[in-house]
Design a protein around this nucleic acid. Structure first.
Lengths: 149, 149
DNA sequence: GTATGTGCAAAGTATTTGCCCCAGA
DNA sequence: TCTGGGGCAAATACTTTGCACATAC
């Protein structure tokens, strides 16, 4: 998986540029959220995001929510279930996606760096089902080395 | 995918039997939840479950929660994210699972009756990652025929 | 200047817990 | 009888909304 010059999966600058194209204003809060998400790399819930140095003190939780939603509508952020009580957010890359390996005990989330086998299936489903604009979400759950006794 | 004599994906009786083996008592509420889940077939949130004829009036919402959690611990029920605000529950079959096709507009949930391409990946991840007791969850999101204009 | 973005507080909705009574084995 | 199950109500947690003010463009 390619990474930007900072070693992140998705480059904050790219996202900000695309956000502007989408009509979003470049505010302090927007920059902060995007940067925090880029640094995080893996999906992160709102209450974690709040604590990130780039975000803490910069903007309110409500603003975070609204920004994440807006970014989501523009396809720049993806919202994940991950079986947690809270929603998890991560920067979405154009045309790309990640699959995750999650420990159901401690909740750790790792990015699966493998060839995703679902692309083909997705195309077939697109043909057969009548659904359009498909994307998928794949998570593998298990017990991580630290959690299985 | 095989179905039981009632045409359900998972037979309520089988689940009840396995629940008893697991040490759960056979209560009215337990029977009701399992039956309702079997009838539903597709994943269903708690507030829907409450309204099902087999459940309505039989037991309290709290009891439903506790039962679903207990059944989940015994591997008899699976809890899904599905990007809804509420968790979705469905009967789990031993060694089996379903993938879903979900409309992100109207929220409809269909079971994908296809060969799941993730089994292989799952095995490989088991070998490489050090994680154990793996299972996966795959959802394809899109716009259903009714929702794309 | 104007439309969009933001903070604060308050309202929802989903989920969980405590406590005590009830019922299955 | 004895332990796990259930009901009710209250507590938590997460998310969303309203409204008045601030700010990007």
């Amino acid at each position: 998986m390619d990474r930007c010059k900072h070693g992140h999966f998705v480059c904050a600058d790219t996202v900000l540029a695309r956000a502007k194209e989408g009509g979003l204003r470049r505010t302090r809060a927007l920059e902060a959220v995007v940067e925090a998400l880029a640094e995080a790399g893996t999906p992160i819930p709102l209450n974690e995001l709040e604590k990130k140095p780039s975000v803490a003190g910069v903007c309110d939780r409500t603003t975070l929510f609204r920004l994440l939603n807006r970014l989501g509508e523009h396809g720049l952020v993806r919202r994940l279930g991950l079986h947690k009580r809270a929603a998890y957010f991560t920067l979405a890359m154009p045309g790309g996606h990640h699959d995750y390996l999650i420990c159901r005990e401690c909740g750790s989330v790792e990015i699966l760096e493998v060839e995703c086998p679902v692309q083909e299936l997705e195309k077939e489903v697109a043909k057969v089902s009548g659904y359009t604009d498909l994307y998928h979400e794949l998570e593998i759950y298990g017990l991580c080395p630290n959690c299985h006794g």
